[in-house]
Amino acid sequence: MFLLLLQLVVNGVLLGGTYLLLAQGLNLVFGVMGVVNLAHGAIITLAGLFTFWFATTTHLNPLLVLPIVFIVMLAAGAGLQRVLIEPIVNSGRKAELLSLMVTFGLAYVLVEGALDIFGSEYVSLPDLQTTWVIGGLAVNEALVVAGLLGAGISGALQVWLQHTASGKTLLATSQNQIGALSCGIDVRRMRAVAFAVGSALAAAAGVLLILVIPLAAPTADTLTILAFVIVALGGLGDYQGAALAALLLGLVQSFVGYYLGGNAEYVVPYLLLIIFMIVRPQGLGKAGRPIWSEKR
């Protein structure tokens, strides 16, 4: 019994690590820009499908793609922000609605592009499928790599935000844009940095996700919703809250899936979201704010 519970905890923690990376990019973009990037799942999926193509074409380790897509999406994210998002930032109260429409459109373009380039089929990589059994505890290589790298990259994001000058500047912008402006911070540049890093984090999540679950272009919407649920559970703009939410979601899904079956596991994220919206709308973290908050 103890071994079973331990196995469920290990599975839940590893799943949580992947979820964390899935959500951090979205959280960063929302925190700094107040934009819910509806193209987030499309970027994840595109990166995952590219990883599949790379690994099956070159027969090299799929993780080699990670730094490549990270850098490419940093540049692409900055470009997209300047061209698509920045022009509508100063539209007052319409900005949020316009940004939703723009990122929704971007999601469609990316998904259709992925369909044209990679096809519509679900793909999955047979790499890193070794399972180690340690004292009766089964630990899979792909889940460990995805979970640890996911948590590691999210941890690096935290260190950057909390302990470097550039990170603190970005964090300050996310906490209070007017305050940041009055301190001489180039808020416009920070918005580009946030969207670039957010996109790069999404791409990194895609590389790791294809190791764990089958992906197809139409999966993009589901991933955007899942990431949004984690961010909302953690409290919008709260990075530590998102980490707790990802961990909580992974653990609850692990236990619910085992004891109540796959159907119940499927609804867990949405059920948790409803419960949190009623009981603790500010989310799990200390710095989070409810999704209806107008504070920027």
Partner: peptide, 20 residues
Amino acid sequence: DTTYALPQPDFSSIALAVKN
């Protein structure tokens, strides 16, 4: 005996229940 929906993010829990 169980049922599940798609897209399922992770089949680990179902697999663990099968193993058990």
